[in-house]
C-alpha cells in the first residue's frame, strides 16, 4: 500500500466513530500495536523534543525503505505515534519527506488536541521526516 492508501484507511476507520471518546478509546488500542523501540534506544538521543510526554523514536533503513519503532510514557501519545508509523513506516525516504499528511486534519486529531499536544504531533512528524532525509542521504 502507498502512504496515501494507508492514510485513507486511517480516515475510513476513524469515520466509523461519531463520539471522540470512542476515537480516543481506539487510539489507546492502536497504542498497543505500536512497533516498540528496542530498549537500548530509549535514551536522550532518541527522545523527541517538543513533546510534553516523552516519546522515543528510532528509524532503520533496509532495502531502500525506512522503518520506525517508538515508545512513549503516555498511552494516547503511543496511539498517535502508532498511527503515524502505520502510515509512514516501510516507505521510501523520498515518499516520507513529501507525504501528504492531511489525514491528521481529516480525522480531526489536531483540532482535538491541546496546543501543547498538537505541537508534539508536529514535532513527531518533523522528526520522522528528518530521519528519512538523513537515511536517504547516508545511503545514496
Amino acid at each position: 500500500m502507498t502512504i496515501k492508501e494507508r492514510a485513507q484507511s486511517v480516515v475510513d476507520e476513524f469515520s466509523m466513530f461519531d463520539d471522540w471518546m470512542d476515537k480516543y478509546a481506539y487510539l489507546i488500542e492502536l497504542g498497543k500495536e505500536l512497533p516498540l523501540i528496542d530498549e537500548k534506544y530509549k535514551n536522550e538521543t532518541h527522545l523527541i523534543s517538543g513533546c510534553q510526554s516523552r516519546v522515543w523514536l528510532h528509524a532503520s533503513y533496509e532495502e531502500e525503505k525506512v522503518s520506525f519503532t517508538a515508545d512513549s510514557d503516555a498511552v494516547i501519545t503511543k496511539g498517535i505515534i502508532s498511527l503515524l508509523i502505520r502510515v509512514l513506516s516501510d516507505s521510501k525516504p523520498s515518499d516520507i519527506v513529501t507525504a501528504d499528511l492531511s489525514f491528521i486534519d481529516e480525522i480531526g486529531l489536531k483540532a482535538h488536541l491541546s496546543p501543547t499536544r498538537a505541537n508534539g504531533l508536529v514535532s513527531m512528524i518533523k522528526q520522522m521526516q528528518l530521519y528519512a532525509r538523513a537515511l536517504h542521504i547516508k545511503n545514496s
Binding site: 471518546m21 480516543y24 510526554s53 510514557d73 503516555a74 498511552v75 494516547i76 501519545t77 488536541l113 491541546s114
Partner: peptide, 21 residues
C-alpha cells in the same frame, strides 16, 4: 501508572478544564 496528559486529554473531551503538567 497513568500519565497526567492521558487523563488531561480525556477530561478535556468530557468538558472538564483542568491543568496538567
Amino acid at each position: 501508572n497513568i500519565h497526567p496528559f492521558d487523563i488531561g486529554t480525556l477530561m478535556n473531551q468530557l468538558g472538564i478544564a483542568l491543568r496538567s503538567g
